[in-house]
Nucleic acid binder design. Structure first.
Lengths: 187, 187
DNA sequence: GCCGGATCGTTCGGATCCGTACGATAGCCG
DNA sequence: CGGCTATCGTACGGATCCGAACGATCCGGC
């Protein structure tokens, strides 16, 4: 379910009037059942996954707007930079996998980052098909400043949850990943 | 943290050999601490949110590949269709808000859906700035077939979790949304 | 040696995706 | 009733984003 999202700052100031165009979660579910009520649907699953996407989008927007934007950095650009920062000299296909983007997308993102002097390509001597990625000194310098800022906002968001909840939450998220991608035989 | 993701179907069949280029979560955290170990970072928060994005991406990919693709439908196109299906005649800015995309993006998506005869624009008589969206009969017919398929896969994924876990999970996700967007005074 | 199959990163076409700027329209207020 | 301001949806430029096709390269078996 994708319920109408309430805007953070109301566009109209006429809050005294009834809200004729906003709908609560309950109204959404009711309206939904009016359309598919006869079908045997799993509303709990739909609701859980709807909130999964909502949460991911909200956090991503928050981090982009509060941290990345002032450094003129996109979400994907930052993730790629982070992966290469930690795994210096990693091959492009593994970077793409870690960043959860396709190889084709990575090619374009690296082109952008390379043009800004943050990342460098490097051919592999033993296997000339491979391309390894490294951060330039400027790239390292940027991440050393940027990542603590990024993590501070992450911490601020998660701090709303109790320590116990965070542990359970993280574990359940991994359960969901495993439910989709299949269990990991190694871990 | 964005740990290297294990591919679902190994590209190489040489599983007997050691995996020299894959890294576990523990290795990622250790490599990370080698770079930022001196800084006071919140690893628990980073790990939780990393898994949030992983889970959302995994579920989205699964639903796209197993359900949407055979109907030649993109994720965003489906979400927009769903919103308009439930809230017939909704104004575009509210559709964009519900679908978690910008108004500009919605314009393009609606253009695509309109060209396929699934959605229709409709001017508002009282306020000629507004554009209302409705599903065509073909659009309704498609959703009546597509959404049950979609929800079946959602149900399959969530079925891996106990009923109790699903409730807690959904609640925590809403906590995260509220932590970012601010608490909702109505609910 | 070499050659057929597998894998690498890239290119290409097309659809999102967004911030900004814009023209059109609505509503307030003197 | 004329102007000021706010809001609507859209056009535009630029960056992602992906599947499919492609040339280059590696590696297996003969």
């Amino acid at each position: 379910m994708f319920a109408p999202k309430r805007s953070r700052a109301a566009e109209t100031v006429t809050t005294l009037a009834r809200m004729p165009d906003r709908h609560t979660l309950e109204e959404t579910e009711r309206a939904m059942k009016d359309h598919v009520g006869s079908l045997p649907l799993d509303f709990a699953a739909a609701n859980a996954l709807s909130n999964l996407f909502r949460a991911a989008n909200a956090v991503r927007s928050e981090l982009t707007n509060r941290v990345l934007r002032q450094h003129d950095m996109t979400w994907t650009g930052f993730v790629v930079l982070w992966v290469v920062w930690i795994w210096d000299g990693m091959e492009t296909r593994h970077v793409a996998e870690s960043a959860d983007i396709s190889k084709a997308t990575l090619t374009g993102v690296v082109r952008t980052l390379e043009a800004r002097g943050l990342i460098a390509r490097e051919g592999d001597e033993n296997d000339r098909r491979l391309v390894r990625l490294r951060l330039t000194p400027e790239g390292v310098s940027l991440m050393e400043q940027l990542y603590p800022e990024f993590n501070a906002v992450e911490s601020e968001i998660i701090s709303q949850l109790s320590e116990r909840k965070v542990t359970t939450f993280t574990k359940t998220l991994r359960d969901v990943v495993n439910a989709v991608e299949g269990p990991d035989p190694v871990e």
